[in-house]
Amino acid sequence: MLALDSVTKTYDGAHPRNVLRAISLVVQSGEYVAIMGESGVGKSTLLNLIAGLDRPDGGHVLFDGQDLGALDDDQATLLRRRAMGFVFQAFHVLPHLSVAQNVALPLLLNGVGRREAQARAITMLAGVGLEGRGNSLPRELSGGEMQRVAIARALVHRPSLLLADEPTGNLDPETASQILRLLRERVKANDATGTAGLLVTHSALAAATADRVLLLTPEGLAPYPPVRPPQAPRLEA
């Protein structure tokens, strides 16, 4: 589904900074992977490369066999619209649209008819625990409910890849726990359509909901928790 091969990214300027070094990663269809890392280590840069919003300085990002670096801006936009879903720390719910209209938006952008898009949005809202709230406006929802809307919107068009960037950063611990369980549940519910999930977070608790956890460091990606080399047996005196 997704493969990164020795991806590097450097920001030029008075003091050039190598943000990502030789990042290699494979994510299979149906797999839910978490990438942990401290602020400033390059998590958002990595997501931008995977989404085709930025281009690597070295290496390749392959999505469904396509090299994203070989696509022009229009081609990358169409690919994101068709095959990717996004959940962010800030909910990015459009305030002037109803909840159902927010969820239906990716379908409409992909050419689905308005009636079918509305019906699929209502079904998806029920799947995230918001049955009967389709006509509500975002201002009538809590933060946790708005994040549920964002999850429904990200998955309603059955994307191949879901990218979640600190999706619980603005939520209280109890609501965050509920959202993380829901996010995993909805990604796994789409197993039949081959949806893979990539969660980027600084939280070990959030990362623990994934199938596999990796740690992003200035040196690259490493397993988490770190694999410790076996210790030699102690010899008794």
Rank of each mutant, 00 (worst) to 15 (best):
L4Q: 00
D5H: 14
S6N: 15
V7K: 09
V7N: 09
T8E: 14
T8H: 14
K9I: 00
D12W: 08
G13C: 10
H15Q: 14
P16L: 05
R17G: 01
R17K: 09
V19W: 08
L20W: 02
L20P: 00
R21S: 15
I23E: 00
I23G: 00
I23L: 03
Y32C: 03
V33R: 01
A34T: 10
I35D: 05
S39D: 08
S39R: 08
V41W: 03
V41A: 09
K43M: 09
S44Y: 09
S44L: 08
T45D: 06
T45N: 06
G52N: 04
L53D: 05
L53F: 13
H60A: 06
V61R: 04
L62E: 10
L62K: 03
F63I: 02
Q66C: 11
Q66S: 11
D67P: 04
D67V: 09
G69M: 00
A70K: 12
L71M: 15
D72M: 05
D72F: 03
D73E: 13
Q75L: 05
T77R: 12
L79H: 01
L79A: 01
R82S: 07
R82F: 02
M84C: 09
F88L: 03
Q89K: 04
A90R: 14
H92D: 11
P95Q: 11
P95D: 10
H96D: 12
V99F: 00
V99G: 00
A100C: 05
Q101A: 15
N102S: 09
N102M: 06
V103E: 05
P106S: 12
P106V: 05
P106K: 11
L107A: 12
L109W: 10
N110C: 04
G113V: 10
R114P: 01
R114H: 06
R114S: 04
R114N: 04
R115V: 15
E116Q: 15
I122R: 00
T123I: 02
L125E: 04
L125W: 03
L125P: 01
L130E: 01
G134W: 01
L137S: 04
E140V: 01
G144H: 00
E145W: 00
E145Q: 05
M146G: 10
M146K: 15
M146Q: 15
Q147K: 10
A150C: 11
I151N: 01
A154P: 12
H157T: 04
R158I: 02
P159Y: 07
L162F: 05
L163A: 03
A164Q: 03
P167Y: 06
P167L: 07
T168N: 13
T168L: 14
D172E: 15
D172T: 13
A176D: 07
A176Q: 07
A176I: 09
A176F: 06
I179E: 01
L183K: 04
R184C: 03
V187R: 02
K188G: 07
T193R: 14
G194W: 12
G194D: 12
L198F: 11
L199Y: 08
L199D: 06
A204L: 12
A204K: 13
A208D: 14
A208C: 11
A210C: 11
D211F: 13
D211H: 14
R212L: 01
V213A: 07
L214C: 11
L216M: 13
L216D: 07
G220K: 07
A222K: 15
A222S: 15
P223Y: 14
P226C: 11
P226S: 13
V227K: 04
R228L: 15
R228P: 04
P229R: 03
P230F: 10
P230Y: 09
Q231D: 13
P233V: 11
E236H: 14
A237Q: 14
